[in-house]
Design a protein around this nucleic acid. Structure first.
Lengths: 100, 100
DNA sequence: CCGTGCTATCGTATATCTACGATGAACGAT
DNA sequence: ATCGTTCATCGTAGATATACGATAGCACGG
């Protein structure tokens, strides 16, 4: 919406980007999901459900949110859907945070 | 609440920490505020209100949230309150993100 | 003491998040 | 074609976030 830009503080479409990515990590379950996807270098589908104490629909919602943020990608693999980290976006997040 | 720990994924009180800090940056206004506090190395009070297109009460709420997350500190300076970045916590956030 | 400027908080309204069960859609196997 | 598996979506409920105006508290200057 607003970008909170000011004349003296030349910004930075990255404010919204950073906020969006940070929000995607703003819940412990999503942090856990991201870690899971990172450790399992391979894409992982709904075994995430078996790792976290949450209902399948709730996990699906978190995955959707993370996918919309760009942090995660999902690819159809037969009956199941394999999720994997979008390394480029994760790198962007790291860069944005490190640049603070 | 839950820490989503699993036997195979030895974690990590840092899941909750990371989520809390990420959430504190999960809104464009708060990113803008953090940037403002970083550039003005000096502590800054409510001139933040003049930089962002938000009401004073809204800014105060964001500041409260950021203060509760630990990212920010506020010190009373006469009639006004000077906010400054908690460098240690910011460094912790950077480390947690970089470690992903 | 009294006003002024600066913040925090309250009250409120709307929107989004979080979580669950139930249902639906897609696919492979029988 | 039918079943079971896998995942997304719907509907719902309660909690939290976002934003504002109004009000209250505090410190300083007159």
């Amino acid at each position: 919406m607003n970008d909170y830009c000011t004349p003296e503080n030349v910004c930075c479409a990255t404010d919204a980007d950073l906020a969006r990515l940070a929000k995607a990590l703003g819940h412990p379950a999503r942090v856990a999901i991201l870690r899971l996807l990172i450790t399992r270098t391979e894409c992982v589908c709904g075994e995430i459900v078996h790792e976290l104490p949450l209902a399948q629909s709730t996990i699906s919602q978190h995955l959707k949110m993370m996918k919309e943020s760009g942090l995660i990608q999902g690819e159809v693999d037969g009956p199941r859907i394999c999720y994997c980290v979008n390394r480029a976006v994760l790198a962007q997040l790291k860069a944005l945070i490190a640049a603070l």
